[in-house]
Design a protein around this nucleic acid. Structure first.
Length: 569
DNA sequence: GCCGTTTTCGGCCCGACTGTTTTCAGTCG
Protein backbone atom coordinates (compact mmCIF):
# COMPACT_ATOMS: atom_id res chain seq x y z
CA UNK A 1 0.00 0.00 0.00
CA UNK A 2 1.25 3.48 -0.88
CA UNK A 3 2.21 5.90 1.87
CA UNK A 4 -0.79 7.74 3.27
CA UNK A 5 -1.63 10.97 1.45
CA UNK A 6 -1.50 14.16 3.50
CA UNK A 7 -4.82 15.13 5.06
CA UNK A 8 -6.57 18.28 3.98
CA UNK A 9 -5.80 19.76 7.40
CA UNK A 10 -2.08 19.12 6.93
CA UNK A 11 -2.05 20.73 3.49
CA UNK A 12 -3.97 23.71 4.83
CA UNK A 13 -1.48 24.03 7.72
CA UNK A 14 1.41 24.11 5.25
CA UNK A 15 -0.25 26.84 3.21
CA UNK A 16 -1.04 28.85 6.33
CA UNK A 17 2.56 28.67 7.45
CA UNK A 18 3.67 29.57 3.95
CA UNK A 19 1.39 32.61 4.16
CA UNK A 20 2.76 33.61 7.58
CA UNK A 21 6.39 33.31 6.50
CA UNK A 22 5.77 35.10 3.20
CA UNK A 23 4.12 37.90 5.10
CA UNK A 24 7.01 38.21 7.53
CA UNK A 25 9.37 38.33 4.55
CA UNK A 26 7.32 41.21 3.16
CA UNK A 27 6.11 39.53 0.01
CA UNK A 28 3.13 40.67 -2.06
CA UNK A 29 0.10 40.86 0.21
CA UNK A 30 -2.29 39.49 -2.38
CA UNK A 31 -0.25 36.36 -2.84
CA UNK A 32 -0.36 35.87 0.92
CA UNK A 33 -4.12 36.36 0.78
CA UNK A 34 -4.33 33.75 -1.99
CA UNK A 35 -2.46 31.22 0.19
CA UNK A 36 -4.82 31.86 3.07
CA UNK A 37 -7.91 31.56 0.93
CA UNK A 38 -6.63 28.31 -0.55
CA UNK A 39 -5.92 26.97 2.95
CA UNK A 40 -9.45 27.79 4.08
CA UNK A 41 -10.93 26.19 0.99
CA UNK A 42 -8.92 23.01 1.50
CA UNK A 43 -9.99 22.77 5.14
CA UNK A 44 -13.64 22.94 4.09
CA UNK A 45 -13.38 20.44 1.28
CA UNK A 46 -14.73 16.97 1.98
CA UNK A 47 -12.76 15.15 -0.71
CA UNK A 48 -9.04 14.48 -0.38
CA UNK A 49 -7.41 17.51 -1.98
CA UNK A 50 -4.15 15.56 -2.28
CA UNK A 51 -5.94 13.09 -4.52
CA UNK A 52 -7.59 15.86 -6.51
CA UNK A 53 -4.23 17.56 -7.05
CA UNK A 54 -2.66 14.33 -8.27
CA UNK A 55 -5.52 13.98 -10.73
CA UNK A 56 -5.09 17.60 -11.81
CA UNK A 57 -8.57 18.63 -10.68
CA UNK A 58 -7.80 20.49 -7.46
CA UNK A 59 -7.70 23.68 -9.52
CA UNK A 60 -11.44 23.35 -10.02
CA UNK A 61 -11.89 24.39 -6.39
CA UNK A 62 -12.41 28.14 -6.04
CA UNK A 63 -9.25 29.83 -4.78
CA UNK A 64 -6.93 27.10 -6.06
CA UNK A 65 -5.18 27.60 -9.37
CA UNK A 66 -2.39 25.99 -11.32
CA UNK A 67 0.39 27.21 -9.02
CA UNK A 68 -1.10 26.15 -5.71
CA UNK A 69 -2.15 22.83 -7.21
CA UNK A 70 1.49 22.24 -8.18
CA UNK A 71 2.54 23.09 -4.62
CA UNK A 72 0.10 20.51 -3.28
CA UNK A 73 1.51 17.87 -5.64
CA UNK A 74 4.97 18.71 -4.30
CA UNK A 75 3.74 18.28 -0.76
CA UNK A 76 2.22 14.91 -1.64
CA UNK A 77 5.34 13.66 -3.38
CA UNK A 78 8.07 15.04 -1.13
CA UNK A 79 6.27 15.74 2.15
CA UNK A 80 6.59 19.51 1.98
CA UNK A 81 6.10 22.34 -0.49
CA UNK A 82 9.43 23.67 -1.74
CA UNK A 83 8.25 27.25 -1.38
CA UNK A 84 7.64 26.50 2.29
CA UNK A 85 11.00 24.79 2.84
CA UNK A 86 12.80 27.74 1.27
CA UNK A 87 11.11 30.27 3.51
CA UNK A 88 11.57 28.13 6.57
CA UNK A 89 15.30 28.26 5.88
CA UNK A 90 15.13 32.05 5.79
CA UNK A 91 13.00 32.77 8.85
CA UNK A 92 14.18 31.49 12.26
CA UNK A 93 11.87 28.89 13.78
CA UNK A 94 9.91 30.80 16.41
CA UNK A 95 9.51 34.13 14.62
CA UNK A 96 6.28 32.98 12.99
CA UNK A 97 4.83 32.19 16.42
CA UNK A 98 5.32 35.86 17.44
CA UNK A 99 2.25 36.49 15.30
CA UNK A 100 0.05 34.47 17.65
CA UNK A 101 0.48 37.18 20.29
CA UNK A 102 -2.42 39.63 20.27
CA UNK A 103 -1.65 42.91 18.56
CA UNK A 104 1.48 41.51 17.04
CA UNK A 105 1.32 41.02 13.29
CA UNK A 106 3.77 40.12 10.55
CA UNK A 107 5.27 43.59 10.23
CA UNK A 108 6.09 43.82 13.89
CA UNK A 109 7.34 40.23 14.07
CA UNK A 110 9.72 40.98 11.19
CA UNK A 111 11.05 44.10 12.86
CA UNK A 112 11.65 42.40 16.18
CA UNK A 113 13.62 39.73 14.35
CA UNK A 114 15.55 41.89 11.90
CA UNK A 115 16.17 45.03 13.92
CA UNK A 116 16.64 43.52 17.37
CA UNK A 117 17.94 40.10 16.40
CA UNK A 118 15.32 38.37 18.56
CA UNK A 119 14.46 34.92 17.18
CA UNK A 120 12.88 32.98 20.06
CA UNK A 121 9.93 33.46 22.42
CA UNK A 122 12.35 33.37 25.37
CA UNK A 123 14.38 36.11 23.67
CA UNK A 124 11.23 38.12 23.07
CA UNK A 125 10.34 37.94 26.76
CA UNK A 126 13.80 39.07 27.73
CA UNK A 127 13.76 41.94 25.24
CA UNK A 128 10.41 43.11 26.61
CA UNK A 129 11.59 42.82 30.21
CA UNK A 130 14.74 44.82 29.47
CA UNK A 131 12.65 47.44 27.67
CA UNK A 132 14.47 46.92 24.41
CA UNK A 133 11.31 46.72 22.32
CA UNK A 134 10.49 50.39 22.83
CA UNK A 135 13.54 51.21 20.74
CA UNK A 136 11.41 50.32 17.72
CA UNK A 137 9.42 53.23 16.27
CA UNK A 138 5.75 52.95 17.17
CA UNK A 139 6.55 50.78 20.18
CA UNK A 140 6.16 51.92 23.76
CA UNK A 141 5.76 50.76 27.30
CA UNK A 142 2.18 49.55 26.74
CA UNK A 143 3.20 47.32 23.84
CA UNK A 144 5.90 45.71 25.97
CA UNK A 145 3.50 45.10 28.83
CA UNK A 146 0.94 43.60 26.48
CA UNK A 147 3.47 41.18 25.06
CA UNK A 148 4.70 40.12 28.50
CA UNK A 149 1.14 39.53 29.66
CA UNK A 150 0.33 37.43 26.59
CA UNK A 151 3.53 35.41 26.96
CA UNK A 152 2.72 34.76 30.63
CA UNK A 153 -0.71 33.45 29.58
CA UNK A 154 0.95 31.10 27.11
CA UNK A 155 -0.81 32.69 24.15
CA UNK A 156 1.97 31.82 21.74
CA UNK A 157 2.05 28.15 22.71
CA UNK A 158 -0.55 26.81 20.34
CA UNK A 159 -3.95 27.26 18.85
CA UNK A 160 -6.21 29.65 20.75
CA UNK A 161 -8.72 27.66 22.79
CA UNK A 162 -12.20 27.54 21.34
CA UNK A 163 -15.41 26.93 23.25
CA UNK A 164 -17.96 24.29 22.32
CA UNK A 165 -21.23 25.33 20.70
CA UNK A 166 -23.03 23.20 23.27
CA UNK A 167 -21.76 25.35 26.13
CA UNK A 168 -21.82 28.70 24.32
CA UNK A 169 -25.37 28.54 22.98
CA UNK A 170 -27.15 28.30 26.36
CA UNK A 171 -25.14 31.19 27.79
CA UNK A 172 -25.70 33.30 24.69
CA UNK A 173 -29.45 32.71 25.01
CA UNK A 174 -29.39 33.76 28.65
CA UNK A 175 -27.63 36.98 27.66
CA UNK A 176 -30.14 37.65 24.88
CA UNK A 177 -33.03 37.12 27.32
CA UNK A 178 -31.43 39.35 29.95
CA UNK A 179 -30.98 42.16 27.42
CA UNK A 180 -34.50 41.77 26.03
CA UNK A 181 -35.84 42.25 29.53
CA UNK A 182 -34.24 45.69 29.74
CA UNK A 183 -36.63 48.58 29.01
CA UNK A 184 -34.22 50.29 26.60
CA UNK A 185 -33.94 47.20 24.35
CA UNK A 186 -35.92 47.07 21.13
CA UNK A 187 -34.51 44.09 19.28
CA UNK A 188 -31.86 41.65 20.53
CA UNK A 189 -30.33 38.74 18.63
CA UNK A 190 -27.54 36.23 18.86
CA UNK A 191 -24.95 36.67 16.10
CA UNK A 192 -21.50 35.40 15.18
CA UNK A 193 -20.44 31.81 14.67
CA UNK A 194 -22.87 30.53 17.30
CA UNK A 195 -25.78 31.88 15.26
CA UNK A 196 -24.31 29.93 12.33
CA UNK A 197 -24.21 26.91 14.69
CA UNK A 198 -20.54 26.35 14.03
CA UNK A 199 -19.27 23.55 16.26
CA UNK A 200 -16.81 25.74 18.19
CA UNK A 201 -16.49 29.47 18.81
CA UNK A 202 -13.87 31.97 19.81
CA UNK A 203 -16.27 34.53 21.26
CA UNK A 204 -20.01 35.06 21.70
CA UNK A 205 -21.70 37.91 19.80
CA UNK A 206 -24.93 39.72 20.61
CA UNK A 207 -26.57 42.46 18.52
CA UNK A 208 -29.25 44.88 19.67
CA UNK A 209 -31.16 48.02 18.85
CA UNK A 210 -32.14 50.31 21.69
CA UNK A 211 -33.96 53.49 22.55
CA UNK A 212 -31.03 54.37 24.79
CA UNK A 213 -27.92 52.44 23.66
CA UNK A 214 -25.75 53.67 26.54
CA UNK A 215 -28.25 52.34 29.08
CA UNK A 216 -28.29 48.95 27.41
CA UNK A 217 -24.49 48.60 27.26
CA UNK A 218 -24.31 49.69 30.91
CA UNK A 219 -26.82 46.97 31.79
CA UNK A 220 -24.79 44.46 29.77
CA UNK A 221 -21.49 45.04 31.57
CA UNK A 222 -23.29 44.74 34.93
CA UNK A 223 -24.88 41.33 34.26
CA UNK A 224 -24.23 38.79 37.03
CA UNK A 225 -21.97 36.48 35.02
CA UNK A 226 -19.53 39.24 34.07
CA UNK A 227 -16.06 38.81 35.55
CA UNK A 228 -14.16 41.54 33.73
CA UNK A 229 -15.09 44.47 31.49
CA UNK A 230 -12.63 44.66 28.62
CA UNK A 231 -14.18 47.57 26.73
CA UNK A 232 -17.25 49.67 27.40
CA UNK A 233 -18.57 52.39 25.11
CA UNK A 234 -22.07 53.58 24.23
CA UNK A 235 -22.55 51.33 21.22
CA UNK A 236 -20.18 48.49 21.99
CA UNK A 237 -18.94 46.52 24.96
CA UNK A 238 -16.79 43.46 25.54
CA UNK A 239 -16.72 41.42 28.74
CA UNK A 240 -15.15 38.22 30.00
CA UNK A 241 -17.56 35.89 31.81
CA UNK A 242 -16.83 33.91 34.94
CA UNK A 243 -16.43 30.80 32.76
CA UNK A 244 -13.70 32.66 30.87
CA UNK A 245 -15.77 33.25 27.72
CA UNK A 246 -15.52 36.45 25.72
CA UNK A 247 -18.82 38.19 25.09
CA UNK A 248 -19.37 41.08 22.65
CA UNK A 249 -22.38 43.38 22.40
CA UNK A 250 -23.04 45.79 19.51
CA UNK A 251 -25.91 48.25 19.59
CA UNK A 252 -27.19 49.90 16.40
CA UNK A 253 -29.91 52.20 15.20
CA UNK A 254 -33.12 50.32 14.33
CA UNK A 255 -33.01 51.38 10.66
CA UNK A 256 -29.72 49.51 10.06
CA UNK A 257 -30.36 46.51 12.32
CA UNK A 258 -30.36 44.19 9.29
CA UNK A 259 -27.00 45.49 8.09
CA UNK A 260 -25.42 45.05 11.51
CA UNK A 261 -26.87 41.58 12.14
CA UNK A 262 -25.76 40.40 8.71
CA UNK A 263 -22.27 41.77 9.24
CA UNK A 264 -21.77 40.29 12.70
CA UNK A 265 -23.22 36.91 11.81
CA UNK A 266 -20.49 36.39 9.22
CA UNK A 267 -18.77 34.30 8.28
CA UNK A 268 -15.92 36.52 7.30
CA UNK A 269 -15.54 34.53 4.09
CA UNK A 270 -19.25 34.86 3.30
CA UNK A 271 -19.11 38.62 3.84
CA UNK A 272 -15.98 39.02 1.73
CA UNK A 273 -17.54 37.08 -1.15
CA UNK A 274 -20.82 38.99 -0.78
CA UNK A 275 -19.04 42.34 -0.83
CA UNK A 276 -16.83 41.46 -3.77
CA UNK A 277 -19.92 40.53 -5.76
CA UNK A 278 -21.74 43.67 -4.69
CA UNK A 279 -18.79 45.78 -5.67
CA UNK A 280 -18.88 44.42 -9.20
CA UNK A 281 -22.44 45.73 -9.30
CA UNK A 282 -21.37 49.17 -8.06
CA UNK A 283 -22.44 48.66 -4.45
CA UNK A 284 -20.36 48.92 -1.31
CA UNK A 285 -21.61 46.86 1.63
CA UNK A 286 -20.73 47.53 5.25
CA UNK A 287 -22.28 47.01 8.68
CA UNK A 288 -23.90 50.46 8.38
CA UNK A 289 -25.61 50.04 5.06
CA UNK A 290 -25.16 49.67 1.32
CA UNK A 291 -23.63 52.61 -0.56
CA UNK A 292 -24.43 53.06 -4.23
CA UNK A 293 -20.97 53.94 -5.52
CA UNK A 294 -22.12 56.21 -8.35
CA UNK A 295 -24.44 58.45 -6.36
CA UNK A 296 -23.08 58.01 -2.86
CA UNK A 297 -26.59 57.20 -1.67
CA UNK A 298 -26.68 54.98 1.40
CA UNK A 299 -29.43 52.41 1.84
CA UNK A 300 -30.05 50.82 5.23
CA UNK A 301 -32.10 47.74 6.05
CA UNK A 302 -34.19 46.89 9.09
CA UNK A 303 -33.85 43.15 8.57
CA UNK A 304 -31.61 40.68 6.78
CA UNK A 305 -34.32 39.52 4.37
CA UNK A 306 -34.62 42.95 2.74
CA UNK A 307 -30.84 43.42 2.68
CA UNK A 308 -30.28 40.12 0.87
CA UNK A 309 -33.21 40.86 -1.44
CA UNK A 310 -31.76 44.27 -2.37
CA UNK A 311 -28.47 42.59 -3.27
CA UNK A 312 -30.27 40.05 -5.44
CA UNK A 313 -30.34 37.03 -3.15
CA UNK A 314 -32.96 34.92 -1.43
CA UNK A 315 -32.60 34.96 2.35
CA UNK A 316 -29.64 32.77 3.27
CA UNK A 317 -30.02 30.85 6.56
CA UNK A 318 -27.09 31.67 8.88
CA UNK A 319 -25.90 28.06 8.91
CA UNK A 320 -25.13 28.27 5.18
CA UNK A 321 -23.07 31.47 5.32
CA UNK A 322 -19.64 29.94 4.80
CA UNK A 323 -18.88 30.87 1.19
CA UNK A 324 -19.52 27.30 0.12
CA UNK A 325 -21.84 27.92 -2.81
CA UNK A 326 -24.70 29.56 -0.89
CA UNK A 327 -24.45 32.92 -2.69
CA UNK A 328 -24.87 31.37 -6.11
CA UNK A 329 -27.71 29.17 -4.88
CA UNK A 330 -29.42 32.18 -3.32
CA UNK A 331 -29.07 34.16 -6.55
CA UNK A 332 -30.51 31.39 -8.68
CA UNK A 333 -33.26 30.40 -6.26
CA UNK A 334 -31.80 26.95 -5.61
CA UNK A 335 -31.16 27.09 -1.88
CA UNK A 336 -32.33 23.91 -0.13
CA UNK A 337 -35.24 24.04 2.28
CA UNK A 338 -33.29 23.04 5.38
CA UNK A 339 -34.38 20.49 7.96
CA UNK A 340 -35.70 21.90 11.26
CA UNK A 341 -35.65 20.64 14.82
CA UNK A 342 -39.43 20.28 14.81
CA UNK A 343 -39.17 17.82 11.90
CA UNK A 344 -37.61 15.12 14.10
CA UNK A 345 -39.94 12.24 14.99
CA UNK A 346 -37.52 10.09 16.95
CA UNK A 347 -33.97 9.53 18.11
CA UNK A 348 -32.02 6.59 16.72
CA UNK A 349 -29.02 6.44 19.05
CA UNK A 350 -29.33 6.68 22.82
CA UNK A 351 -28.46 4.78 25.97
CA UNK A 352 -30.21 3.72 29.16
CA UNK A 353 -28.86 2.47 32.46
CA UNK A 354 -28.38 -0.89 30.73
CA UNK A 355 -25.15 0.71 29.50
CA UNK A 356 -22.44 1.17 32.12
CA UNK A 357 -22.36 4.90 31.39
CA UNK A 358 -26.14 5.36 30.99
CA UNK A 359 -28.02 7.20 33.73
CA UNK A 360 -31.76 6.76 33.11
CA UNK A 361 -34.08 3.75 32.85
CA UNK A 362 -35.61 2.73 29.55
CA UNK A 363 -38.96 4.09 30.65
CA UNK A 364 -37.48 7.42 31.74
CA UNK A 365 -35.76 7.78 28.39
CA UNK A 366 -38.97 6.87 26.55
CA UNK A 367 -41.08 9.35 28.48
CA UNK A 368 -38.51 12.11 28.02
CA UNK A 369 -38.44 11.42 24.28
CA UNK A 370 -42.24 11.46 24.13
CA UNK A 371 -42.23 14.76 26.00
CA UNK A 372 -40.06 16.19 23.22
CA UNK A 373 -42.79 15.27 20.76
CA UNK A 374 -41.04 12.17 19.44
CA UNK A 375 -42.95 9.09 18.37
CA UNK A 376 -40.19 6.53 18.80
CA UNK A 377 -36.78 5.88 20.28
CA UNK A 378 -34.15 3.38 19.14
CA UNK A 379 -32.52 2.19 22.32
CA UNK A 380 -28.91 1.47 21.42
CA UNK A 381 -27.08 0.41 24.55
CA UNK A 382 -23.46 -0.66 24.21
CA UNK A 383 -22.98 -4.23 22.98
CA UNK A 384 -20.49 -5.09 25.72
CA UNK A 385 -23.11 -4.26 28.36
CA UNK A 386 -25.56 -6.72 26.82
CA UNK A 387 -23.55 -9.93 26.80
CA UNK A 388 -24.33 -13.22 28.58
CA UNK A 389 -28.04 -13.20 27.98
CA UNK A 390 -28.57 -9.69 29.31
CA UNK A 391 -29.91 -8.60 25.95
CA UNK A 392 -32.89 -10.95 26.21
CA UNK A 393 -33.66 -9.50 29.63
CA UNK A 394 -33.44 -6.04 28.14
CA UNK A 395 -35.90 -7.00 25.39
CA UNK A 396 -38.38 -8.09 28.06
CA UNK A 397 -38.10 -4.70 29.70
CA UNK A 398 -38.50 -2.93 26.37
CA UNK A 399 -41.69 -4.92 25.74
CA UNK A 400 -43.05 -4.03 29.17
CA UNK A 401 -42.20 -0.34 28.76
CA UNK A 402 -43.83 -0.30 25.33
CA UNK A 403 -47.10 -1.44 26.88
CA UNK A 404 -46.98 1.45 29.32
CA UNK A 405 -45.92 4.22 26.92
CA UNK A 406 -47.98 3.27 23.84
CA UNK A 407 -48.49 4.60 21.25
CA UNK A 408 -44.92 5.78 21.77
CA UNK A 409 -42.54 3.03 20.75
CA UNK A 410 -39.11 1.89 21.96
CA UNK A 411 -37.22 -0.12 19.38
CA UNK A 412 -34.68 -2.85 20.07
CA UNK A 413 -31.30 -1.55 19.05
CA UNK A 414 -27.65 -1.73 19.92
CA UNK A 415 -24.51 0.31 19.51
CA UNK A 416 -22.05 -2.39 18.52
CA UNK A 417 -18.32 -1.89 18.55
CA UNK A 418 -16.24 -2.24 15.42
CA UNK A 419 -13.27 -4.27 16.64
CA UNK A 420 -9.64 -3.68 15.73
CA UNK A 421 -10.07 -6.48 13.17
CA UNK A 422 -13.12 -4.87 11.64
CA UNK A 423 -15.74 -7.25 13.06
CA UNK A 424 -18.97 -6.18 14.70
CA UNK A 425 -18.82 -7.53 18.25
CA UNK A 426 -22.17 -9.31 18.45
CA UNK A 427 -23.24 -12.63 16.98
CA UNK A 428 -25.30 -12.59 13.77
CA UNK A 429 -28.08 -14.56 15.55
CA UNK A 430 -28.47 -11.66 17.97
CA UNK A 431 -28.05 -8.89 15.42
CA UNK A 432 -30.77 -10.27 13.18
CA UNK A 433 -33.32 -9.98 15.98
CA UNK A 434 -32.72 -6.27 16.37
CA UNK A 435 -34.66 -3.39 14.83
CA UNK A 436 -31.72 -1.00 14.56
CA UNK A 437 -27.98 -1.67 14.67
CA UNK A 438 -25.50 1.18 14.99
CA UNK A 439 -21.83 0.20 14.56
CA UNK A 440 -19.13 2.55 15.81
CA UNK A 441 -15.39 2.80 16.24
CA UNK A 442 -14.40 3.28 19.86
CA UNK A 443 -10.75 2.22 19.91
CA UNK A 444 -7.67 1.77 17.73
CA UNK A 445 -8.53 4.79 15.61
CA UNK A 446 -5.22 4.60 13.79
CA UNK A 447 -5.61 0.96 12.71
CA UNK A 448 -7.10 0.98 9.20
CA UNK A 449 -10.25 2.82 10.25
CA UNK A 450 -11.56 3.10 6.69
CA UNK A 451 -11.28 -0.63 6.03
CA UNK A 452 -12.90 -1.48 9.35
CA UNK A 453 -15.84 0.84 8.73
CA UNK A 454 -16.25 -0.50 5.20
CA UNK A 455 -16.28 -4.04 6.62
CA UNK A 456 -19.03 -3.03 9.06
CA UNK A 457 -21.02 -1.48 6.21
CA UNK A 458 -20.85 -4.79 4.35
CA UNK A 459 -22.53 -6.58 7.25
CA UNK A 460 -26.20 -7.13 6.34
CA UNK A 461 -27.15 -6.45 9.95
CA UNK A 462 -25.55 -3.03 10.32
CA UNK A 463 -28.05 -0.24 9.67
CA UNK A 464 -25.97 2.80 10.58
CA UNK A 465 -22.42 3.88 11.30
CA UNK A 466 -22.16 5.92 14.51
CA UNK A 467 -19.93 8.99 15.02
CA UNK A 468 -17.88 8.36 11.89
CA UNK A 469 -14.48 9.75 12.86
CA UNK A 470 -14.57 9.30 16.61
CA UNK A 471 -13.26 12.82 17.12
CA UNK A 472 -13.57 14.67 20.43
CA UNK A 473 -13.52 18.39 19.74
CA UNK A 474 -10.53 20.10 21.34
CA UNK A 475 -9.34 16.76 22.76
CA UNK A 476 -8.72 14.24 20.02
CA UNK A 477 -8.76 14.59 16.29
CA UNK A 478 -10.75 11.97 14.53
CA UNK A 479 -9.63 8.87 12.70
CA UNK A 480 -8.22 9.53 9.25
CA UNK A 481 -11.12 7.96 7.39
CA UNK A 482 -11.63 8.08 3.63
CA UNK A 483 -15.04 9.67 3.76
CA UNK A 484 -15.60 9.56 0.01
CA UNK A 485 -15.19 5.79 -0.15
CA UNK A 486 -17.34 5.26 2.92
CA UNK A 487 -20.09 7.53 1.62
CA UNK A 488 -20.08 5.81 -1.77
CA UNK A 489 -20.38 2.35 -0.23
CA UNK A 490 -22.96 3.49 2.31
CA UNK A 491 -25.08 4.83 -0.53
CA UNK A 492 -24.84 1.52 -2.43
CA UNK A 493 -25.72 -0.60 0.60
CA UNK A 494 -28.28 1.89 1.91
CA UNK A 495 -26.45 2.15 5.20
CA UNK A 496 -27.15 5.30 7.19
CA UNK A 497 -24.38 7.60 8.46
CA UNK A 498 -25.38 9.52 11.56
CA UNK A 499 -24.76 13.02 12.74
CA UNK A 500 -23.93 12.42 16.39
CA UNK A 501 -25.06 15.52 18.27
CA UNK A 502 -22.95 15.18 21.41
CA UNK A 503 -21.45 18.65 21.95
CA UNK A 504 -17.88 17.42 21.80
CA UNK A 505 -18.48 15.08 18.88
CA UNK A 506 -20.75 16.67 16.25
CA UNK A 507 -19.55 13.87 14.03
CA UNK A 508 -19.85 13.59 10.98
CA UNK A 509 -18.59 17.09 10.52
CA UNK A 510 -20.56 19.48 8.31
CA UNK A 511 -18.76 19.04 4.99
CA UNK A 512 -18.82 15.26 5.31
CA UNK A 513 -22.53 15.20 6.09
CA UNK A 514 -23.09 17.38 3.03
CA UNK A 515 -21.17 14.90 0.91
CA UNK A 516 -23.27 12.06 2.35
CA UNK A 517 -26.49 13.91 1.60
CA UNK A 518 -25.44 14.64 -1.96
CA UNK A 519 -24.63 10.95 -2.47
CA UNK A 520 -28.11 9.96 -1.36
CA UNK A 521 -27.12 8.55 2.04
CA UNK A 522 -29.80 9.03 4.69
CA UNK A 523 -28.47 10.82 7.74
CA UNK A 524 -30.14 10.35 11.13
CA UNK A 525 -29.54 13.17 13.60
CA UNK A 526 -28.90 11.41 16.92
CA UNK A 527 -28.36 12.68 20.43
CA UNK A 528 -26.36 9.65 21.66
CA UNK A 529 -27.99 10.63 24.96
CA UNK A 530 -26.86 8.91 28.14
CA UNK A 531 -29.31 10.96 30.25
CA UNK A 532 -32.84 12.24 29.65
CA UNK A 533 -31.63 15.85 29.41
CA UNK A 534 -29.10 14.95 26.73
CA UNK A 535 -31.88 14.15 24.26
CA UNK A 536 -31.90 17.93 23.76
CA UNK A 537 -28.51 17.70 22.06
CA UNK A 538 -30.56 16.94 18.95
CA UNK A 539 -30.76 20.69 18.45
CA UNK A 540 -26.99 20.91 17.99
CA UNK A 541 -27.16 18.02 15.54
CA UNK A 542 -29.88 19.79 13.56
CA UNK A 543 -27.60 22.84 13.38
CA UNK A 544 -24.89 20.59 11.98
CA UNK A 545 -27.35 19.05 9.50
CA UNK A 546 -28.36 22.52 8.33
CA UNK A 547 -24.71 23.48 7.93
CA UNK A 548 -24.52 20.37 5.73
CA UNK A 549 -27.35 21.71 3.52
CA UNK A 550 -29.60 18.78 4.51
CA UNK A 551 -33.34 18.87 3.89
CA UNK A 552 -36.04 17.10 5.85
CA UNK A 553 -36.06 14.23 3.34
CA UNK A 554 -32.34 13.62 3.73
CA UNK A 555 -32.57 13.28 7.51
CA UNK A 556 -33.80 9.77 8.26
CA UNK A 557 -35.50 10.37 11.60
CA UNK A 558 -37.88 13.00 10.30
CA UNK A 559 -40.00 9.92 9.57
CA UNK A 560 -42.05 7.76 11.92
CA UNK A 561 -40.75 4.28 12.66
CA UNK A 562 -43.51 2.81 10.50
CA UNK A 563 -42.32 4.88 7.55
CA UNK A 564 -38.70 3.93 8.17
CA UNK A 565 -39.54 0.22 8.46
CA UNK A 566 -41.52 0.39 5.23
CA UNK A 567 -38.65 2.10 3.40
CA UNK A 568 -36.23 -0.58 4.51
CA UNK A 569 -38.59 -3.26 3.24
C1' DG B 1 -1.62 33.89 -6.63
C1' DC B 2 -6.51 33.94 -8.30
C1' DC B 3 -10.08 35.50 -11.22
C1' DG B 4 -13.67 37.59 -14.84
C1' DT B 5 -22.36 39.00 -17.16
C1' DT B 6 -17.71 45.74 -17.13
C1' DT B 7 -11.73 42.91 -17.25
C1' DT B 8 -6.76 37.26 -19.68
C1' DC B 9 -4.75 42.67 -16.92
C1' DG B 10 -5.64 44.97 -13.07
C1' DG B 11 -8.12 44.50 -9.66
C1' DC B 12 -8.48 41.98 -4.87
C1' DC B 13 -14.35 43.94 1.60
C1' DC B 14 -14.85 47.35 5.00
C1' DG B 15 -14.53 49.86 9.10
C1' DA B 16 -12.88 50.35 13.98
C1' DC B 17 -9.52 50.28 17.36
C1' DT B 18 -4.77 50.68 19.36
C1' DG B 19 -0.69 52.88 20.44
C1' DT B 20 1.63 56.21 19.47
C1' DT B 21 0.78 59.61 17.18
C1' DT B 22 0.23 65.49 14.95
C1' DT B 23 -2.00 62.17 10.15
C1' DC B 24 -1.04 57.00 10.58
C1' DA B 25 0.42 52.06 10.10
C1' DG B 26 -0.65 47.85 11.84
C1' DT B 27 -3.92 44.78 13.54
C1' DC B 28 -8.38 42.80 14.12
C1' DG B 29 -13.00 40.88 13.23
Amino acid sequence: MAAALPRNGDLADQLELLADLSEILGEQPFRVLAYRRAAARIRDTAASVAELALAGTARELPGIGKTIEAKIVEAVESGEMQALSRRRAQVPGEVASFMRLPGLGPKTAARIWRELGVTTLAGLREAAERQRLRALPGFGQKSEEKILRALAEGAAAGEPRRGLLGSGLPLLREVVEALRAHPAAVEVSEAGSVRRRKETFRDLDVIATAADPAALTAHFVALPWVLEVVAHGDSKATVITKQGLRLDLRVAAPESYGDLLQHFTGSKEHNVALREEAQRGGLSVSEYGVTVSETGEVRTFRDEESLYAFLGYAFIPPELRESAGELEAARTGTLPHLVELADLKGDMHCHSSWSADGRASIEEMARAAAARGYRFLCLTDHSHSLRDGRIEAQWEEIAAVNERVAPFRVLRGVEANITAKGDVDLADEVLEQLDWVVASLHTSFDRSPTERILAAIESPHVDCIGHLSGRRLSRRRGADVDVERIVARAAETRTALEINAQPERLDMRDVHARLAGEAGVLVPVDSDAHTTQALAYAELGIGQARRAWLTKDQVLNTRTWAQIAKMRG
